[in-house]
Amino acid sequence: MLRIHFTSEDLARVTLGYNSSLPVSEAVMSLQALRRGSGPRFSAWRHAVGKQLPARASLLGSLVPAAGWAPDFLTPGPDHASPTTGAFDAIRATPQRRLTTELRRLSHDRRLPAWAQLLADGDRETLDAVTDTLAAYYDIAVTPFLDRMRAVLDADRTWRVHTMARFGVGAVLAGLHPQMRWEEPVLELPGPPGQGQIDFHLEGRGLLLSAHIFCGSRPRALLNDVGTPVLVYAPAWNPQTGNLVAEPPDTRPRSSTALATLLGRTRAAVLEALASPAGHSTKQLAESLAISPATASEHVTALRDAGLVTSLRQANTVRHTTTNLGTNLISTATGTGGIQLP
């Protein structure tokens, strides 16, 4: 069991992570999921990725076990987490002392190949080869699925923000995993079988909560003596976005009969598709309904002008979702009672 101790200053510094470009740690965790073959949710993804692994993927396989701890230098912290914020440059610049320490720790649990000693000694050519392979793997395992992964993470973040605004930080911490327990000022996390109790004091540095698609069933605490501590957890999944590989869409948008009579079949389908807290980008909306982006944009504009849809810019993406009026219209037309938030 891991016990994370908070001060009042730490509680004030609990934040929810967001990266428009997903962090490199997502790729590292996905490699573990690929190796252990976990769950039907990722079966189509594993099939797609497994057919095009980079030529030197064995370099990563030697450093990243199927389960458990992987070297921290492969997963840069919040300031350099993603490719757009310099993650691969940060990996290339890893000091020799850190490489030595982390590879020594890794060697306690598994036998490392001979070339790992070069890496532990700070050989730049070897470090560059590992970094280049990780970058190539990221482009195969994460980049093509970014939109669908982002949709899952955005929906989860919207839910957590709503929970924090309504019930406070403690409710968010307690709701990250069924086995997590919040008794102020301590958060208890389940640990690996056989592991004793570990106490970690945040000491005013706060905690970054970061949802990762490939986190696995157990939350992961990335804790050290420098930088911002990070708690990685699995997001809540919407069954409608439960597969990272998009299935062929229906050729005709679907909507309720009453709503289609009022708005027209396609416009009604657009309105219903946007009835979630996370909403959709124009591109996601077009893909989900098998219509062109121009058609999707036209219908969104008409619905927004009627006060049924609102649009919000997040980083470089504009996301559309229904207003209360739009949600109530769907509820009345379909008899579903609409989306109820506590």
Rank of each mutant, 00 (worst) to 15 (best):
R98L: 15
A116W: 03
A315D: 15
E203Y: 06
T100I: 04
A81D: 01
R304M: 01
R157K: 12
A55K: 13
G335M: 02
R46K: 13
P54D: 01
D156K: 03
M149D: 01
F88I: 06
S281H: 06
T133I: 03
T100C: 08
G227M: 05
A90R: 12
V232Q: 14
A66R: 15
D225G: 15
R252N: 13
G37I: 01
L274H: 00
V226I: 10
A333C: 11
P23S: 04
L119A: 03
S8W: 01
R265F: 05
E272I: 10
Q197I: 13
V309G: 01
H299F: 07
H108C: 12
D79H: 10
R319A: 01
L53D: 03
A275T: 04
A221I: 14
R124S: 11
V300G: 11
T332D: 07
W69D: 10
T75V: 06
T257M: 10
L223P: 00
R56Q: 11
D79Y: 08
L259R: 04
D10Q: 11
R35F: 08
R111K: 12
D250F: 12
A27K: 03
V64N: 00
P293M: 02
V64Q: 00
P144H: 09
P248W: 13
R105L: 15
V226H: 12
L134I: 05
R97Y: 12
R319L: 14
W45N: 12
G86W: 03
T301A: 14
L74T: 02
T251P: 01
L31G: 01
S288L: 10
Y138S: 00
R46F: 08
D79Q: 14
S62E: 15
V226N: 11
A234L: 11
K51G: 05
G175F: 00
A286V: 03
D109S: 13
T295I: 03
A273M: 12
A268N: 03
D10H: 04
P219N: 04
V186W: 08
V270D: 01
N19T: 11
I330M: 05
P229D: 07
E287C: 02
E287N: 04
T251R: 14
I330F: 04
T126I: 04
G335R: 00
A57M: 05
A275I: 00
A114M: 12
G338K: 03
P95E: 09
L207F: 06
H320A: 02
Q340N: 08
L262V: 10
M29W: 06
L222V: 13
Q179I: 05
P178E: 06
T84L: 13
V318L: 04
R97V: 14
S210L: 15
Y138F: 06
G338C: 01
V28L: 05
Q32C: 05
R98I: 09
T334K: 01
S311Q: 00
G175E: 03
D128W: 09
Q179T: 09
G39T: 12
A211R: 05
T251V: 14
T261D: 13
T266K: 07
R35G: 07
I4N: 00
I4M: 09
F73T: 01
E272P: 09
T322N: 00
P229H: 06
P95C: 11
I291L: 05
H5G: 03
A70V: 13
T251Q: 12
T301K: 11
L74E: 05
L259A: 05
L259F: 07
I291T: 02
A81V: 10
P239E: 10
G194W: 07
D128Q: 09
A315T: 14
A333D: 02
T310Q: 14
E184Y: 09
